[in-house]
Structures are given as C-alpha cells and as structure tokens.
C-alpha cells in the first residue's frame, strides 16, 4: 500500500515537472520567436549556410585552442605543485624561494588574466630580449600559465594543508625524510582531495585560452571574430560557443561526479 502510494506520488511529481518544463520553454520560445528582431538575428547568428561555410576554419582554430589548453594545463599542473611545495618548506635556507612564491601567487592572482596576456604578449615582444620567444602563441600560453599556476598552487596548498598533521608524524616516525614523506604520503592524499577544484580550474583555463586571440594567433574565436567584423555574420561565433560547450559541459559533469563521490567516501578522499 505504502509503496504504491509512494510510486503514485513519484509519478505525479515527474508529470508536473515535465509539464512545467514544456510550458516555460514554450513561453520562452514564443517570446523570442515573435520578437521583431528575430528574423535578422536568425539570419546573422543561426544561418545554416554560414555555419557550413565557416565551420571547417572554426574547427581548425578550435583545435589550436585545445592543443594550447593541453600544453598550458600540463605546465600549470607542474609549476603549481612546485610553488605549493616550496611554500610548505621550513628550511631557513629556502626562505627567499618561499618569499618569491608568495609574491608570485599574490601578483598573478591579483592581475586580471586578460591584462597579463597583454603585458606578456606585447611587453615581452617590445623588449625584444635575446633568448626570449617572440611567437605570440608561446607568449600568450606563457601568460596563461603564469596566471593559472598561481591559482592551481593555492588549490594544491589547500589540499596539502587538509592532510592531517598526524600523517606527517607517522611518516617521519618511520624514518622517512621530509621530502620522502611529502612525496609518498602527503602529496598523493592532497592531490586526490583537490581533483574536483583542479578540474574547475581546467574549465576556466579552457575558456580563457580564447584570450590569446588578442595577440593574433588564428584560434577559433579570432577566426570567428574576423568573419563577424568583415562580413557581418555572427554564426561562426555561435559555432565557437557550441564547440566550447562540447568540452566544458562534460568536464563540469565530471567535477560534479567526483565531488559527489568524495562526499560519499570517508575522510573526503577520492579513491581513484
């Protein structure tokens, strides 16, 4: 009896949710489609013809974004961890490095990423220092790496701090050095705990790769922008947005999944 009642209630709830969704979406669609500017917007933003024509170029540009993202992310993960580790050292001899790490994090997190891209991209270029690269792609990637390393270092640091001090005591008592204790005991636990926030930073970086367009490389947004500026067609911009969503939405779902899992498992650690 109870079970049947509960099932009926569940069915009713599903039905209400479905109807309400239809009504809201329908109203929204009607509202937009009857707007006086809709035909114009449809032709400039949602033209199938323009989409077909521009998509291969946009996709090629997006591939550049993805490659840059992967390379920058790999660099960020390594530099971020290095900075976090430097900040956990105690040795007086390493004080200057600790100080540099603190200043680096404060400055890089305090300056808007887009400004960093400008400063590194155009500033370093203008300096024309010997030995420094001049490729805008490299400079833009470097700017992104600087900015995100600071964020990721803080994420790692919070993970390292969250490992209970008794773990360090346990490792030292076994005769491990501080470095061995970090490497085998503290950091592996810290990294497992910060995977969800790290993935959030992944998503942000994936989107911010578009910022290097201001330095000129033919990445997806840049290509679409040129199209928009010269032909007044905005459909390529929409296709770029869709391509971004194809990458960021799965990542976001993965983050949710991992977070739910780490909430379920004891001690907040994700067993991978």
């Amino acid at each position: 009896m109870r079970a049947a009642a509960r099932r009926r209630r569940a069915q009713r709830r599903t039905a209400v949710a479905a109807v309400s969704t239809l009504v809201v979406l329908g109203a929204l669609a009607a509202w937009i489609l009857t707007a006086p500017g809709w035909p114009d917007v449809r032709d400039t933003f949602f033209s199938v013809h323009d989409f077909r024509a521009s998509f291969p170029d946009v996709l090629r540009g997006f591939w550049l974004d993805v490659k840059l993202f992967v390379i920058v992310e790999a660099i960020v993960l390594v530099i971020g961890l290095s900075i976090a580790l430097v900040r956990t050292t105690r040795t007086p001899a390493l004080f200057p490095f600790r100080a540099i790490a603190v200043v680096f994090c404060d400055v890089m997190r305090g300056v808007p990423t887009i400004l960093l891209v400008y400063l590194v991209g155009f500033g370093v270029l203008a300096l024309s220092l010997k030995g420094l690269p001049t490729d805008p792609l490299v400079l833009g990637g470097a700017a992104l790496a600087l900015s995100y390393s600071a964020y990721v270092a803080e994420v790692y640091r919070s993970g390292i701090d969250s490992v209970h001090p008794t773990q360090m005591a346990g490792a030292l008592a076994l005769g491990l050095t501080r470095v061995q204790a970090m490497r085998h005991v503290i950091v592996p636990q810290a990294v497992r705990r910060v995977i969800p926030p790290l993935l959030n930073d992944f998503i942000a970086l994936q989107k911010d790769v578009a910022l290097i367009s201001i330095l000129g490389p033919a990445e997806a947004f840049r290509i679409a922008q040129i199209d928009a500026a010269s032909n007044f067609v905005y459909t390529p911009l929409v296709s770029v947005a869709l391509l971004y969503l194809c990458v960021t939405i799965p990542l976001a779902r993965l983050v949710d999944h991992l977070q739910a899992r780490s909430r379920r498992s004891r001690g907040g650690a994700v067993a991978l």
């Binding site: 008794t166 005769g175 085998h184």
Partner: peptide, 29 residues
C-alpha cells in the same frame, strides 16, 4: 632521520596511510 630509523613508534590514532594498501603501508619505510 637516522635515529628514527632505529626506533619504532605507534600512535594512538593509528596514523596508517589511507591511500596505501596494508602491504604498501608496511613496505614503504
């Protein structure tokens, strides 16, 4: 470090390493 390698210590709250199996906990040191 050299001294701790010659002494064994067991704590109240176990201090086992949760990300390692029992065997890995034992062979680490």
């Amino acid at each position: 470090i050299e001294v701790r390698r010659r002494l064994g210590m067991v704590f109240q709250a176990f201090n086992l390493f949760p990300h390692m199996t029992v065997l890995q906990n034992l062979v680490l040191a």
